[in-house]
Amino acid sequence: MNLDPLNFLGQTLALLLLAPLLSGCIKNWKAKLQNRRGPRPWQVYFDIAKFLRKDMVISEHASWVFSFAPYVVFLTALLAGLMVPMINAPAPLRLFGGVLAVVGLLALGRFFLALGGLDPASAFGGMGSSREMTISAIAEPAMMLAIFTVAITAGSTDLSQIAQSTQSATWKLLNPAHVLAFAAMFVVLLAETGRIPVDNPATHLELTMIHEAMLLEYSGRYLAFMEWGASIKQLVLMTLLVNVFFPVGLAGPQASVAALGISLAAYLAKLLALSAVVVVVETTNAKMRLFRVPDLLSTAFVLAALALLSTFLFQ
């Protein structure tokens, strides 16, 4: 059981600190694209620190599930993060779960987030939960099919294994199966992290919110954990997209410090590139009508199915 504490501690800290910075960067770049200076990338830290210090107001209708949900959301996102390779191929909790466990943990977080939205008996929370579960119900098969495509070519569902096998055959990155799977995962990323075509994170209109509607009743440290969990989940999905579907520059298991440095640099570069693509997509698109979102996600499912077919045809 090679759970070396250094790798574990390093990745936990990286997850905790990098996630808010990443969502702060995305907000800042969106502002830059609108010709405004916008909030500084580390503004999210200040917000979280302030929420932690503030008092909490809890609805009189809320039950124990309402107070339990923030911890579940925060911890499941963190655990899922520890199972995904960030800097070197073997993720710290590699033995405890592969890609199925990551998807399962994120689903557990969403399950309790939706319950937390329903609990305070407000119509907006119910609306947010219903929309969140509907969208994830359509997004998950697409994500699973994309992951199967990659897992089948690698022969296992262990993420580090997948990353290494795809990394070894570099031409593999360009074969149609991989490209289609990457496209499908990108659409799922937009849906899961509530980005513009699906949901507007910075919206002020409760009737159009999906993710934000479930957090309307949270305050104080519960809200801090919810926001932090959501940003960690976004980092996990982006890392999955960047390190498993496009593992260029990922260090091997017993890598030297130099290799780790290069891997860290490559990882951050890929992450920022992906964030740039997300920002451009958000800036040039309007939010889709709610009934069009399943069509978008079924196209993602078709993309993943085509990816699967092409592994079968081109192998």
């Binding site: 502002a31 609108q34 010709n35 405004r36 200076r37 916008g38 909030p39 500084r40 503004q43 200040f46 917000d47 302030k50 503030k54 107001v57 002020h204 409760e206 919110m209 934000e212 957090l215 309307l216 009743e217 949270y218 305050s219 809200l223």
Partner: peptide, 21 residues
């Protein structure tokens, strides 16, 4: 709006009073 850009000071108008200071 982009000219004044209140967001750069970390000041923001929020949807729910629960999130507000």
């Amino acid at each position: 709006t982009i000219g004044w850009d209140l967001g750069r000071f970390g000041i923001q108008f929020v949807a729910s009073p629960r999130h507000a200071d």
